[in-house]
Amino acid sequence: MALNLEDLKAGGIISQRQKNMFSIRVKILGGNVTSAQLRKIADLAETHGRNYAHITTRQGFEISHVNFEDVEKVTIGLEKVGLVLGACGSRVRVVVACQGTDICPHALDDTQLLVRTLDERFYGRFGVPHKFKMGVSGCPNACAKHNENDLGFMAVVEPVLIDKESCINCGLCAEVCPGKAIEMKDSLPVFDSTKCFHDGKCIDICPRDSLGVNRKGWQVFAGGKWGRRPQLGIPIANFVATEQIPEMVENILSNYIKLANKRERLGELINRLGMEVICDGCIF
């Protein structure tokens, strides 16, 4: 086998500073890893590495200090528990996410479902001008830091008074609203949508379920990045349904590929040409 370092890197096999040593990047989707997978990672690190694994910033693992001769043994071992290598280089990277509605009381939508949807269609895609990262947060707490990714998705809801008869004028909705977007007027809550964070705290706390969901979906952020010139993604669309997301991402990716210079991140393209060029159907 001819050793081409660039090829190896694209596949998640990273050349270390130590000669002939590699760090094997393992993709963990949305941060969820099974017990069997954890055991296998531990075994492989013990047998072929230096008895530890590094937790990556994209919720994966790297098994470091693997001799070139052992790389294949590690990848075969990973395959046995359904694990694949993590992407590197100018590719669509692993999608990161919080746990979402699976466990979190704050979560507003199924982050893991969106992660799987994005992963199936886009993971590892190459031919993009630079690395391309996506992240998913289940509510405006933004624990998954979705807006530091090229594309970020944050679950949001728009509250509405669905049953004014049942409202007991307790004012808890106004009290807990982080945006101070609710005022009690004539014994009923009145919403100021310009102040609303769409986190649904008012709906959750309402003792009488007088408040409900008017609209829900994903707020989409574009252009986030880190590195030497960090910047946060800017909201480009609101209340987008899970099933609409793949087409939107496809559209943005194709504009990005068409317009960006080599090694220009999506955020840098937006800085140079404006948000309009990357998304035809978006609301700004």
Partner: peptide, 8 residues
């Protein structure tokens, strides 16, 4: 407390 207890 008021943000969490009533919800729970």
């Amino acid at each position: 407390p008021i943000e969490n207890v009533p919800r729970s």
